[in-house]
Design a binder for these strands. Structure first.
Lengths: 247, 247
DNA sequence: TTCGCCAATAATGTGCACATTTTCTCAAGG
DNA sequence: CCTTGAGAAAATGTGCACATTATTGGCGAA
């Protein structure tokens, strides 16, 4: 590290984007299940990885902790949450309650353009399943539920939905590290059919059962705690590369 | 827990509580509508008020901003959000969607103890209304909706519900600063009746109309932006008093 | 060996100094 | 009178030093 700088290396304006980039990168790693539950994220190590100050990492970690994506234990460190069985129950019940409300509104207010987008998404899911593209199937499966809530055009609902999905992603990677049991495309298709018929009761039941299936599958498996070299899962953010050239 | 160390000014564990106390105090002021929308919360002023370092205040403010309770504008400061008309629409739609999901579950799963708690709450609301206790009526009115979600015993749902309520509280204080148009007790009572009969359709309609009424009332009024001496609304937190004696 | 204690090391928590940016003040010029 | 701009003042942003706490490693006694 340089001892004292006569001038600022970068203007202050770029720093906000830098924060955002680091935040997005860690969020992505969690959402994609690339960080094992229980993994510790030491501030020094991350600061070195992203080539920023420790304070900057600290701020991002605490922000993620406020969103329950990470867990900060005072004087101990920051960890990827290790969801308990009760956490699974809480999160999936929240998913069910939340989507029930979404469906109740969609049945009353959806239009053709929304149905068209849902149909297009189902086609993409079926195509990924036919090709056997597992990673894409997982991604689309989660995106289906986001599509439902985004159709309402409500930023608050979308934000909360993403927080829930982020947390269930960690659970999936904990409880089923090996097999790829994604949402069945058939269940998504049946739900869309019920929506098209504006059949509230049927749509509610299908959504509820859908999340029940996922939750049940999770509880069958056992958690396999293990350590992990987290450094490998992060992609470099733009600014860190830029600064690396100066050294 | 006893202080063994030669000279601990304060035990390190107390600091977490201190953060929490300041966070709770500002949250309370927002929830109670004691902070006018648009009010700036300067870091060094708050630091002086609570008698803590500016960094500590800073952390709390950014945490509240992450929950959308406050708004941080880079290099400008932290402000109580000034909700736009579209914000009102988004928040109250979120309320409706969210409570619809809650009701759908409550109708299927509630038991006598939950109904008893709801009845007791209604009695308290009616009592406050009869006594003309406006502040208590406002508080109980918001608490009714929290009681509904808390009945599910789901921390995630409760947390999100409180975030929403916190944001709508600011809106109420912005758009109707004078009159006390709280939730009508009758509407709460009718909703409880529908729940008791396990009438999903009726309960959904009542909840929806209830929030529609509140939102409509808000939109009739005009925002009255004005400055405010925020220092008067904060109560001292324990630790700040303790330290004040040393000066 | 194994347990427990203590020093050594590493990691987190925090106050502070200083850099950067914005806002305020005021006066000169159109 | 209004506008504009330069400098001062005030507020926010950030890196760093140091305090505090947890973890590790080692050493001696049962």
């Amino acid at each position: 590290m340089t001892a004292k700088r006569p001038r600022p290396i970068r203007s202050g304006k770029g720093r906000v984007d830098l924060d955002e980039a680091i935040y997005a990168e860690i969020s992505r790693a969690i959402l994609h299940g690339q960080l094992q539950a229980g993994t510790k994220l030491p501030e020094h190590k991350l600061a070195e990885l992203f080539d920023v100050s420790r304070e900057r990492i600290r701020k991002v970690l605490h922000r993620l902790a406020a969103e329950r994506r990470l867990e900060v234990i005072p004087n101990r460190g920051t960890f990827v949450p290790r969801p308990s069985g009760d956490d699974v129950r809480v999160i999936y019940q929240a998913h069910r309650v939340f989507e029930a409300g979404i469906i109740e509104l969609l049945v009353r207010t959806m239009d053709d353009s929304i149905m068209a987008r849902l149909d297009a998404h189902l086609a993409a899911e079926r195509d990924a399943a036919r090709r056997g593209d597992r990673a894409e199937s997982v991604r689309l499966s989660g995106a289906f539920h986001l599509l439902l809530v985004d159709a309402l055009g409500n930023s608050e609902l979308s934000r909360f939905s993403r927080e829930l999905l982020s947390r269930s992603s960690v659970m999936v990677s904990v409880y089923e590290p090996a097999q790829s049991s994604v949402c069945a495309v058939d269940e998504h298709g049946a739900l869309v059919d019920a929506l098209r018929q504006r059949d509230l009761t049927k749509a509610l039941a299908l959504s509820r059962e859908h999340y029940d299936h996922i939750e049940q599958r999770l509880k069958l498996d056992q958690a396999v705690p293990r350590h992990q070299d987290f450094a490998a899962v992060f992609r470099p953010v733009a600014a860190s590369e830029r600064r690396s050239r100066n050294r």
